[in-house]
């Protein structure tokens, strides 16, 4: 991915030298044209076209913000409810992610999800131990959310 971006910047500079104009606008034009060239030559790279990964990162960021707002609403409801009928507990969640930064992002996402908080990680980085605030109804819903998170992170790292 980094190689493709470097190549694209290089093509942008090449366009500036071709057109003899050294304005930022010329660089942006050359960058867009270079992106077109990289897209048409995408089968010669070992990895996929880098714009797809950029879009995946942006959608992951939007997911982050959405989860932050939803979790705040759930904490709000929990704290302001007159009766305190919560059932906290710790459950284990096996993860398929392997690289360190992927697991870090997953843990951060889970911590910002409604009603969950990562307490510990097993030594072989295979299992996350998660404290949840409501054990009954959370389990199923949370697992499905985890699947969407893991999928979004895989989409970035694939």
């Amino acid at each position: 991915m980094a190689f493709q971006i470097l190549l694209n910047v290089f093509l942008g500079f090449l366009w500036m030298f071709f057109t003899l104009s050294y304005e930022p606008v010329a660089f942006i034009k050359g960058y867009l044209l270079g992106m077109l060239i990289l897209f048409s030559f995408r089968r010669f790279f070992g990895t996929r076209f880098y714009l797809g990964r950029v879009i995946a990162i942006i959608s992951l960021l939007l997911l982050f913000i959405k989860e932050l707002i939803l979790s705040n609403l759930s904490v709000l409801k929990l704290v302001l409810k007159p009766k305190l009928d919560i059932k906290p507990g710790i459950f284990a969640l096996p993860t398929v992610l392997e690289k360190d930064w992927e697991i870090t992002i997953l843990a951060n996402l889970i911590t910002l999800t409604p009603g969950t908080l990562v307490v510990d990680l097993s030594d072989d980085n295979k299992i996350l131990y998660i404290h949840t605030i409501d054990m009954d109804d959370a389990q199923e819903a949370i697992d499905s959310i985890k699947n969407t998170f893991e999928k979004a992170i895989m989409e970035v790292s694939r």
Binding site: G89, F91, V119, Y129, M135
Partner: peptide, 8 residues
């Protein structure tokens, strides 16, 4: 707690 799982 209801369930205190594998961490213990």
């Amino acid at each position: 707690n209801s369930v205190q799982d594998d961490l213990k």
